[in-house]
Design a protein around this nucleic acid. Sequence first.
DNA 1: CACTTAGGTATCTTTTTGTATACTAGGTTT
DNA 2: AAACCTAGTATACAAAAAGATACCTAAGTG
Lengths: 127, 127
Amino acid sequence: MEEPHCKFETVLEILVGKWKPIVLFHLFSNGTMRFSELQKAIPDITKKMLTQQLRELEYHDIVHRKIYHQIPPKVEYSITEHGKGMSTVLQAMNDWGMSHLTHLNELYGEERSVESFEGRLDEVTGN
Amino acid sequence: MEEPHCKFETVLEILVGKWKPIVLFHLFSNGTMRFSELQKAIPDITKKMLTQQLRELEYHDIVHRKIYHQIPPKVEYSITEHGKGMSTVLQAMNDWGMSHLTHLNELYGEERSVESFEGRLDEVTGN
DNA sequence: CACTTAGGTATCTTTTTGTATACTAGGTTT
DNA sequence: AAACCTAGTATACAAAAAGATACCTAAGTG
């Protein structure tokens, strides 16, 4: 076999967390967003989770946090230059992910959406 | 709302779980492995977790489970053809992951970033 | 003087994941 | 006959992640 597939865990570590993908999606799509704009765009997220996910992305230098020292506060989030470098990886994951969805539909049936795969997995694993 | 970076969640869904990466790594590296060989290769994993992770990968048609009907039981696991198609994505994740580690080292220094990534990664790579 | 605003924290509870340990089947070896 | 394989289950438990809710700040507004 070719090169060992190993350190993709690093990417996983960045992306791990229930809300990271959708947060990243919005920031990649919209460029720069305020905390409250992200909250609006992701209605079910709590402030705590949004803060947490953003802080973790910030630690990995994927997201930049710009604070305006005003009252009421204003904080803007955006993808860093380093973070933009992730887009090819995300795109590759996205593309393969799409084709995988098609494949799963062929295997298990068309009527199932992404969300319902979870439930079907539970049927199989008995959890 | 066009979607440049969105359904990479599908890949995440396959890879999610504490032991999936190392299981995949061994199967990609070794081709075909028995349940007990995987157990040996990943000493800290419990049977329950190994079974669970393999079943989930099997559901996604990434891993194939071949049962030999004999006593004592023999079951072999391998990457499916569909699963092999994942290797480019894993490779892309891996490559970017490596450069990200370097970047983190530059940002935080060698000790700090090593500390933030778990030893399991090193187990996999043998570093 | 109280109210509003934006971007958070601080606690506590619930849910999800992962771990530990014991048990099973049925043929083979001691 | 008892012990030993392998590839699992079953059950109980601990730890981690996520959710719910209340609270904080400090200037501007009515």
